[in-house]
Amino acid sequence: MFTHITAAALLALTTQAPAASMHQVQLSPALSQQSKALVRCSAAFALISYGQDIGNEAALKWPVLETRGKEFFVRALAQLMDETGLDREGISALVGAEAQRLTDAGETEKVMPACLIMLDGSGL
């Protein structure tokens, strides 16, 4: 269920983000390197988890992310909300934009090793 909801949300955000969200994202304070990594890995985990759910061969080579990836995603977004003061819509726009960037640049597979290290380091 996580993968369907997350993928649908990311797809909706990357195809048409509400004007208020985009404005809010542009006004958000600069993110720390750690927060940028949280956004990047949250987006990567959502994309890979969705790919695993639909049987994408490239996504299936990674560890199953349904449970751990979901928990990482939830905790990371809560932390980002606290750090930036953005609401769910604003944070979703950040993650959606990063998911689109990873997809367009073909970098999802490239960031996964570092993201898996971050996931292991989180204790989840």
Rank of each mutant, 00 (worst) to 15 (best):
L119S: 02
I54R: 08
T103R: 10
S92I: 00
L38S: 05
L119A: 03
S21H: 11
F72P: 01
L94C: 02
K70P: 04
Q24G: 14
A30C: 07
V74S: 03
G121H: 04
E107I: 00
E57I: 08
Y50H: 14
R101F: 10
P18R: 09
G69S: 05
Q16P: 01
A99R: 03
A9D: 09
F45S: 04
G121Q: 10
I5P: 01
A19G: 07
A37P: 06
R68L: 11
S49V: 00
V64A: 14
M118R: 01
Q100I: 00
L119N: 02
D120R: 02
C115P: 06
S92Y: 15
Q79T: 09
A46K: 01
A17V: 04
P63W: 13
T84L: 10
I91D: 04
Q34D: 13
A8M: 13
A46T: 00
K36Q: 15
V39Y: 12
A114Q: 09
R101I: 00
T108A: 12
L77F: 13
A30W: 11
A9E: 11
E89M: 11
A17L: 09
Q26S: 11
A99M: 07
G123H: 05
M118G: 00
R88N: 13
A105V: 02
T84H: 09
L80N: 02
V25Q: 09
F45A: 07
A17P: 01
S92G: 14
E89I: 06
A17F: 13
A7N: 13
D53L: 09
Q24S: 15
E107A: 11
G69A: 05
A7P: 01
T6C: 15
S49H: 03
A58V: 05
L13N: 05
Q34F: 14
M112P: 04
L38R: 08
R75I: 05
M118C: 01
G106M: 06
G90P: 02
G90A: 12
E66V: 05
